[in-house]
């Protein structure tokens, strides 16, 4: 079985984990989601093609995941040129210039969505209902079983979210009924590339991301809005390398016997 686990296996697993969400979201949000998905996918594929020819960076099916995340979480965007602009920015600046998927620092979908939210603040985005949350839960199960989604990140993020929600005096069960929030928790915060990759780093990263979702959600954007989870992921994934470096430094110190 050696040689099966290469980059695109992982991205195909993420794509298949997303299938239940695709069904749920098309029931919940309707045709406009598929339209956004199609435009985003075309734009991302175009840029993957450009970088394939200019820099020999292989194509990746992760384009499906990025495009779908944009389609679901940018639920208020109706102008397609905004999707074209944001997806170009997100995929080129967030992913392709670092060498393609697998080498990026932040998730391309998160960059695209943050661009949309910042550049067009007048567009109102609404969250999705519990159906998408349940579907994302099934996707999460597949990802956990396959080891693509780290259980440490999943547990830490859930704990961080619940504890911070509790600390803010809100109902800790409410976030888990929000489709966009659970979707973001599984597919954005749990993104295997942009998240931390050491054990301790994953605990810290997950807890930070979860707590940020709660803070942004309850105190600013609204827990039902998709903004909270996107901004939380953006910030947390910038801290991920720091957590990893700290975890490596602590481990190195231990090996050297406590003085180094």
């Amino acid at each position: 079985m050696r040689g099966v686990w290469h980059r695109d296996t992982v991205s195909w697993i993420i794509v298949s984990a997303m299938l239940p969400v695709v069904v749920a979201a098309s029931l919940d949000l309707g045709f406009a989601t598929m339209q956004r998905f199609g435009v985003a996918l075309a734009v991302i594929s175009f840029w993957q093609g450009v970088f394939l020819f200019t820099r020999a960076q292989p194509l990746s099916p992760i384009a499906l995941v990025t495009a779908f995340a944009v389609a679901v979480l940018a639920s208020g965007t109706t102008e397609m040129w905004q999707i074209v602009l944001a997806a170009s920015f997100g995929t080129v600046i967030g992913e392709q210039i670092f060498g393609g998927w697998g080498r990026n620092v932040v998730n391309a979908g998160v960059v695209t969505l943050a661009f949309l939210y910042f550049a067009f603040p007048e567009v109102l985005h609404t969250g999705t209902g519990p159906l998408v949350a349940i579907a994302a839960g099934f996707g999460a199960l597949l990802l956990l079983v396959m080891g693509v989604l780290s259980w440490r990140i999943a547990v830490a993020a859930t704990m961080g979210l619940v504890l911070a929600t509790f600390a803010l005096g809100q109902d800790p069960a409410a976030p888990f009924l929000e489709g966009s929030l659970v979707f973001g928790l599984v597919f954005l915060i749990g993104d295997p590339v942009a998240s931390a990759s050491t054990r301790m780093g994953r605990w810290a990263y997950g807890a930070l991301a979860g707590a940020l979702v709660a803070i942004f959600g309850w105190a600013d954007a609204g827990i039902d809005a998709p903004q909270a989870v996107v901004f939380a992921t953006l910030l947390a994934s910038l801290f991920a390398p720091l957590f990893d470096a700290a975890a490596v430094a602590v481990a190195t110190r231990k090996w050297r016997g406590g003085h180094a």
Binding site: E79, F89, I93, F115, F118, A119, F120, P121
Partner: peptide
């Protein structure tokens, strides 16, 4: 014309410079 509010925020200068 829909103004791009992002352009008036500091990060856009970083992106453009980059």
């Amino acid at each position: 014309f829909t103004p791009l509010n992002l352009m008036l925020l500091a990060p856009s200068a970083f992106f453009l410079l980059g």
